[in-house]
Design a protein around this nucleic acid. Structure first.
Lengths: 147, 147
DNA sequence: ATTATGAGTTTACAAGTGTAAACTAAGAGT
DNA sequence: ACTCTTAGTTTACACTTGTAAACTCATAAT
């Protein structure tokens, strides 16, 4: 498995990856049918995306004979966490909490997910600061904003 | 204020937006200095990004005379929530919970953020399902995976 | 052995992005 | 009124992405 942090997957590529992750192993034929059904993509489009993913090391080609199979080379959970972490890393730290709250409100979460989150939060509460500071400007820039 | 969901902000543009959001109102001069200090960008680069943001309606030009000022035309929290929601919308629903957990572990959250999250989770727990299903394949595709 | 067909590889092309130079117009100073 | 300087606008250019056609190479069928 390649480290998910090393691989950048574009939006369309994500669609392909999701199918591959879910099926674990596919032929291009299956994938083409799937993406056509799911997104209405032409055969060519799926082929291109698959090749780009191989080149990026997000997918590995399996087998020797002609109908090859394709399997994920990066983990789904790892890729998801890497993508989400990357996004938050580029946003204001001060508002991350509220953003997370907004996201959570709109997600379907299982009872187990919720318990897990609660446990993590309880843990974090023990050492959490009273305030998180805005990290949007270089620290030496005067910043008398209420942000 | 323009609806954040209508505006797509690229990575570099985010850096500029963060500065503008934090300062609420800037001149291109200030912004150029800031981005140079924060990212080492040349004057030209900041100017280009600022113009793209204006064209996208993420930033508004203020004033009539020559040194114009620039202010956000979309809200920061709204944009953050829109970006994060969009990301999660494109990922497997089944693993969103774990992903959120992973993200939360690595964030700095304030006591208030945590309380807020806890309150939301307690609420969600009341109606949360036992399991969230994978939504990565068209529902009519046979899918005997353990995913 | 020859051909059709399915699978894989190359090329294409417009839009968006990161990065920046060149050009132009409005005010500031003389 | 003329010129310097600063702020704003245009152009540039390579790389990525979304989308897809064209082309080529194995292999199965004849």
């Amino acid at each position: 498995m390649i480290d998910a942090k090393e691989v950048t997957i574009s939006d369309s590529e994500w669609e392909v990856m999701r199918a591959i992750w879910t099926l674990k192993r596919v032929t291009s034929h299956e994938l083409i049918g799937l993406m056509d059904k799911a997104r209405g993509w032409s055969e060519s489009t799926t082929k291109t995306l698959l090749n780009r993913l191989i080149k990026k090391n997000a997918v590995q080609k399996i087998g020797t004979g002609r109908p090859f199979s394709y399997a994920p080379a990066v983990g789904e959970q790892d890729s998801m966490t890497a993508a989400a972490t990357d996004l938050f890393d580029h946003m204001c730290a001060m508002q991350a909490g509220t953003t997370l709250a907004n996201v959570i409100e709109s997600r379907d979460l299982s009872q187990d997910d919720i318990k897990n989150l609660q446990q993590i939060l309880a843990q974090k509460a023990k050492t959490a600061p009273e305030m998180v500071e805005c990290n949007c400007l270089p620290k030496d820039v005067k910043q008398d904003c209420d942000c």
